[in-house]
Simulated scan of single mutants.
Amino acid sequence: MTREVLAIGPRSPPITGPGLKNRYIQSGLEDHGLDVTWVNTLETRPKTVVDILSKTLSYDAYILSASTKVRLGVAPLLATKLRAPDTHGALFPAGGEFADELRAMPGPLRQFYCRTFSTFDGVYPQTDELSRDLRALFDDSVQVRTVPNLRPLPERAASDTGGPSDTLRLAYVGRIKESKGLDDLLSAYERATDAGTDVVLDIYGHFLPDDPYEDRFLDRCSQLPGARFHGKLPNEDVIPTLQDADAFMFPTVYDGEGFPGALVEAFAAGCPVLATDWNFNADIVTDGVDGRLFDPHDVAALSSHIEELADDPALLSDLQDGARQTGRQYSVERVTAGIIENLDASGWDLPEPTVERSRTVEPM
C-alpha cells in the first residue's frame, strides 16, 4: 500500500503561485492518509539537489509538481526509478507552456522527454485545453487528466462583508508588470469615470526588481482619482480583501499565463472576474456566469463591462453568486479528492483517509 510519497517542487513559503498550490496539495493528500515528504525547490540549489539524490533511493511513490527548469532536470532522474515494478509517479506541470515546450524541442530531445514523462502513471495539467494538447503528445499508457488550481474557501461568509455600496469597487491583486495589462486597466477605468461611472480601483502587488515599468505605472496611477496602489498584499489577506470588492480585474496578456491562483482566490471571495480572452482564461471564466471576457487590449470593451456592472446591480449580484459557486469547484477539499481518485485510477494503492476533511484549510 502506498503511504509514503516524495514530492518535489516549489512549496511556500516563500509565497509563489506554484508554491501555494503545492502547499495545499500536500495538506489535502496528508488528510487522505499519505505521508508526504516535500523537497522544496525554492530553497538553495545545492541542498535541494542533495535532498533529491539521497531521497529518491528510498521511496516508491513520487510527485513532481514544478515548472520548466525543475521539471526538465528532475524528471529523467525519477524516470529511472519509475521504470521499476510497483513504483508510482504523478506529474503536475506548473504554468501553461508544457505542451508548447515539448513541441518546440528538436525531434530527438522531444522523443527523449516524451518517453521520460511517460514513465509517470499520470500527468495532471491545470486546464482542459492543456490536457487535450498533452494527450496528443503521449501514448495511451499515460493518464492525462485536468487538475485545476486550488485554494481554501473563506471562513467569513459573504453576508458578513457588509451591505451594498453605490460605488463599484474594483480590485487587482498580482504582480505589477506591463504584460499583466495594467495600462489597459487604468485606461478603461479612466474611460469609465469620464463617462460618469461611480467606481474606485484598488491595486495590490509588487514589482520585479529594476523594472522600468514601476515609475511609469506609479505616475499613471497617481493621476487617476480613485485609483489606489497599496503595494504587496500578504497572502492571508488576499481573499478577505477581495470579499470587500465587487469585481476582480484580470486584463493579462502575459505569455506564460496558466491557471492563475488569483482567479481561484477571486471566485472563493465571490468576486466575478473581468478577464481577457487570453491563453486559458476562457477555460476558467464563464462569460455571463461568473465574470466577463473581452479581447486583449480592448479598452473600450473593458470599460463597457465596468459601466455595465455599475449600472446593473442585479447582474452584478448574479455574477457574484456565480463566482461563489465556481469557487467551490476549486476548494482544497474538492480538488484533492479528485487527485486521490486519479491516483487510485492510475494504480496507486492508497490508504483510507485518516481524518475527516474540513471545508477550509488555514491560509498562510
Rank of each mutant, 00 (worst) to 15 (best):
Leu208Trp: 14
Arg292Pro: 05
Leu6Glu: 00
Leu343Tyr: 11
Asp210Pro: 00
Arg71Leu: 10
Thr37Gln: 08
Lys177Gln: 04
Gly196Gln: 04
Asp287Gln: 05
Pro212Leu: 08
Pro272Met: 08
Pro13Met: 04
Val144Asp: 12
Val144Ala: 13
His230Ala: 10
Arg175His: 11
Asn279Val: 13
Gly73Arg: 12
Leu78Asp: 11
Gly347Tyr: 00
Arg292Ile: 01
Pro272Ser: 00
Ile339Leu: 10
Glu307Trp: 08
Tyr213Met: 00
Asp194Ala: 15
Thr167Ile: 02
Ser27Asn: 15
Ala300Gly: 11
Ile340Val: 14
Tyr62Arg: 10
Ala227Cys: 03
Ser346Asn: 07
Gly226Glu: 06
Pro209Ala: 12
Ile176Gln: 05
Pro296Leu: 11
Asp160Gln: 15
Tyr124His: 10
Val50Ile: 15
Gly256Asp: 08
Ile239Pro: 00
Val273Trp: 02
Gly96Met: 08
Asp311Thr: 13
Glu352Asp: 09
Arg156Ala: 15
Glu333Phe: 07
Leu153Arg: 14
Thr16Asn: 06
Leu274Glu: 09
Leu102Val: 01
Leu343Phe: 01
Arg169Tyr: 03
Ala188Pro: 02
Pro106Asp: 06
Gly196Phe: 04
Leu153Met: 13
Asp184Val: 11
Leu218Glu: 12
Arg156Leu: 15
Leu153Ala: 15
Ala192Ile: 05
Ile306Cys: 09
Asn235Thr: 10
Leu316Gly: 09
Tyr213Pro: 07
